[in-house]
Design a binder for these strands. Structure first.
Length: 300
DNA sequence: AAACACATCAACCGCACAGTC
DNA sequence: TGACTGTGCGGTTGATGTGTT
């Protein structure tokens, strides 16, 4: 039993969108919302299939799209997220406000993949390629992979919710990014990272201090959970709690933006597994310092 | 200036999954 | 419970732009 096509293809236009079509689509969605994508083209008077309309809107016409080249930080973030999520472009895109899955997928296929290859890293596993004679790296443990899968699923769910809420309840200018990351940090995703941190910390402590550490972690976890339930009324305190967990000094900035940046950085820099990520961290620095890496002489 | 190679990115295609009946 | 529908995602393609010979 084959699937029925998403719409009747006869008489429907394909190929690049014209400015007129864009205008029709934008005007329609602004006044009516997209509703059912399948019926949208008919209602809006477009000779396109619903799928095409959805793609055009999400990848190009959406008002929150950020255009222009990726910054080094964004590229670093993409690489780190790819190491965790793999080719789950939508989930990765959700962590980069204003960027689309298509855009990130293109960035990966045209630049980042090549750069990793040139650095002697397998773009899929992010592990050194043996033939490059790179430092031998232990494969990630099954536990790590399992955790990554859970994180991946959680990220995706969180991402979807965030994206939807952002789409329909635009936040004041300049506030969205920080709130966005704080939301992630205080979500289950953040919780699992916090728990990981607790385990890491406990493992390196004596039994006595381990007990107090786990208490501290538990109370932190509960605090974060409560904060989450209360929509994290005090963003700063949420982040400061994480500073305690990570054994970092609590001299974080009072600025909201700085706090959320710290939260994001903690999330990204967190040693999911030293086996998994440490070599990547080292290489990412090199990669950032040599933006022309993709133009290097490389066998790939 | 022309021809060619390569890079980029918008758009399409087909599959998977969740929801509905 | 299974057929069917709608939507989203990831892989791939092809048009266009840019650089090189």
């Amino acid at each position: 039993m084959g699937r029925t096509p998403c719409c009747d293809k006869k008489g429907l236009k394909k190929g690049p969108w014209t400015p007129e079509e864009d205008e029709i689509l934008v005007n329609y969605i602004k006044s009516n919302g997209h509703g059912s994508w399948r019926t949208l083209p008919k209602l809006a008077g477009l000779l396109r299939c619903g799928k095409s309309c959805r793609l055009r809107w999400t990848n190009y016409l959406r008002p929150d799209i950020k255009r222009g080249p990726f910054t080094p930080d964004e590229e670093k973030l993409v690489i780190q997220l790819h190491a965790i999520l793999g080719n789950r472009w939508a989930a990765i895109a959700a962590q980069l406000p204003g960027r689309t899955d298509n855009e990130i997928k293109n960035l990966w296929n045209t630049h980042l993949k090549k750069r990793l290859l040139c650095m002697g890293l397998d773009p899929q596993t992010h592990e050194p390629i043996a033939s490059f004679g790179a430092i031998k790296q232990a494969p990630a443990s099954p536990m790590t992979r399992h955790m990554a899968q859970w994180e991946s699923a959680r990220l995706e769910a969180e991402a979807r919710l965030s994206r939807e809420s952002m789409l329909f309840t635009p936040s004041p200018a300049g506030k969205s990014d920080s709130d966005y990351f704080l939301r992630i940090w205080n979500s289950e995703i953040g919780e699992s990272f916090r728990n990981l941190a607790c385990r890491e910390e406990s493992a390196s402590l004596s039994p006595n201090s381990r007990a107090s550490s786990s208490l501290k972690c538990e109370s932190t976890r509960l605090s974060a959970s409560n904060a989450n339930e209360e929509s994290c009324k005090s963003s700063k305190s949420c982040v400061e709690e994480e500073m305690v967990v990570h054994g970092s000094d609590s001299s974080c900035s009072n600025e909201l933006e700085d706090s959320s940046d710290s939260a994001l950085q903690l999330l990204l820099d967190f040693p999911i597994s030293h086996d998994d990520m440490s070599f990547l961290e080292e290489n990412i620095d090199n990669y950032n310092e040599s933006p022309a890496a993709d133009s290097m002489v490389c066998p790939f």
